[in-house]
Write a protein that binds this DNA or RNA. Structure first.
Length: 424
RNA sequence: GGUGGAAUGGCCGAGUGGUUGAAGGCGCUGGUCUUGAAAACCAGAAACGGGGAAACUCGUUCGGGGGUUCGAAUCCCUCUUCCACCGCCA
């Protein structure tokens, strides 16, 4: 959610944001409604002030005088009811609409309509060339009997899978390695709820708007499966007032993630790329309300992810996500795309977002500064590893001509010291 | 699932229809005292929104929503959450 005062003072900046993010929102119409709501509010409040004054006066009055005043106030109460009924209707729409006003992207966010116009800002690693015909992760998974997509689909429908034996072990190796990597860098591990209420989804700005992508429990529970532990971690301090001295808060979420992938029929149907359920080790930072501070942490969590995939020797590139591809709430976003030989291209594996106060304002997440004043926090998040998508790169890049796969050095201790996966 | 109890400010907690935005305590800020700190004492301070250049002013908020009333933290309905006990289950 944005600061409405800022919107009233700088409507043009928000119109520019709407244009840059390719969002469908009429700023002028909203401002008109905003004006209307404030007029109604004024009217209601004036009547209520009269009522409050009378309710101090009435107990002091006696007899006829008292009865006359009560009769008079009965009229006022009726007027107030009519006025506040009108206000409630307008205000409801006002509250609904303001959740759709996008934040203002930083100047660094490039113009562009969709992910095809994201801008590469750096590259790391050598794209490998194989002296033999490399297999895809699907073939490797089948041949080594470590990925079973067919049976996953049989029991759970499309975009589901089993990891089996060394495949499952490799996944937990890379996740646990990442977990320890971040703990080493001062993050606090949280094992979060995977099922959350509407407030957490709205507070992190997935709702309203993203309902189609989230699995919802049935009506009697009215809860949602998280698509990322960002939801749980960023909401962790919802409605709290933190002390400035506690900031920044740096958390790691280690959780499964569930996504409906509605509207992606026919896209990335093969293999482990686009699936309904995966694990993610996620970084979340809550910091002071200062763009420079946010920028510093953005660089830090981006670097953590880059350092990690460098340690796994996966070639990647970093892109500036363009206006049309960035979310409604984010003010700046980088994706890291890892090299995937079978796709003969980079595939998105990480997403690093700065929100400034957009989420924190919705979550009512504040801190008290040393001067005693309250401020709304800033929030950020970045993937550190998401699996099994990263297994595409890991399996395909480390394959040998004989069909075996080398286990990257940092993961070996997480797999009992073994150095390769081969057919048993 | 059943029965009972509860939800008040940063925290704890008093408050059962009118001057209660709310006693008291803790914590916080400033001051006195002290070489400094602690203790003690004095003083200050809720959040959110509207109007205003400002001083200031108006409104809202006692878990959420609805109702009764001229007037609700207080009475009624409803939902949510928490606690206790019982039942069931991992």
């Amino acid at each position: 959610m944005i600061d409405l005062k800022d919107l009233r003072e700088n409507p043009d900046r928000y119109k520019a944001a709407v244009a840059k993010k390719r969002v469908n929102f009429d700023i002028d119409a909203f401002l008109k409604l905003d004006e209307e709501v404030r007029l109604l509010k004024n009217e209601t409040e004036t009547l209520r002030a009269a009522q409050n004054a009378a309710s101090k006066e009435i107990p002091k009055l006696q007899g006829d005088e008292k009865q006359a005043k009560i009769a008079e106030m009965k009229q006022v109460a009726d007027k107030l009811k009519a006025s506040s009924d009108k206000l409630v209707v307008s205000e409801e729409e006002w509250k609904r609409l303001r959740l759709f006003i996008p934040s203002i992207p930083l100047d660094a966010v490039p113009e562009g309509k969709d992910d095809s116009e994201n801008v590469e800002i750096r590259k790391w690693g050598e794209i490998p060339s194989f002296s033999f015909t490399p297999k895809s992760h699907i073939e490797l998974g089948n041949d080594l009997d470590i990925v079973d997509i067919e049976r996953g689909v049989k029991i759970a429908g499309s975009r589901n899978y089993f990891l089996k034996g060394d495949g499952a072990l490799l996944q937990h190796a890379v996740l646990n390695y990442t977990r320890d990597f971040l703990i080493e860098r001062g993050f606090t591990l949280l094992d979060p709820p995977h099922i959350v209420n509407y407030e957490a989804m709205e507070g992190t700005s997935y709702f309203p708007g993203g309902e189609e992508q989230a699995y919802k429990l049935d009506e009697r529970d009215n809860k949602y499966l998280i698509g990322t532990s960002e939801v749980s971690l960023t909401s962790y301090h919802m409605d709290e007032i933190l002390d400035a001295s506690e900031l920044p808060k740096k958390y790691i979420g280690y959780s499964p993630c569930y996504r409906r992938e509605a509207g992606t029929y026919g896209k990335d149907t093969a293999g482990l790329y686009r699936i309904h359920q995966f694990y993610k080790v996620e970084q979340v930072v809550i910091c002071k309300n200062d763009p420079a501070e946010s920028a510093k942490h953005h660089a830090e969590i981006l670097k953590n992810a880059e350092d990690l995939i460098q340690s796994l020797n996966i070639p990647y590139r970093v892109v500036d996500v363009c206006g049309g591809d960035i979310g409604m709430g984010q003010v700046y976003k980088n994706d890291i795309e890892s090299w995937m030989p079978s796709r003969d291209s980079y595939g998105e594996t990480h997403s690093c977002s700065t929100f400034h106060d957009f989420q924190a304002r919705r979550l009512n997440l504040r801190y008290r500064d040393t001067d005693g004043n309250l401020h709304i926090c800033h929030t950020l998040n970045n993937t550190c590893i998401a699996s099994p998508r990263i297994l595409i790169s890991l399996l395909e890049l480390n394959q040998n001509e004989d069909g075996s796969v080398n286990i990257p050095e940092p993961l070996q201790s997480y797999m009992g010291g073994r150095t390769r996966i081969s057919k048993s």
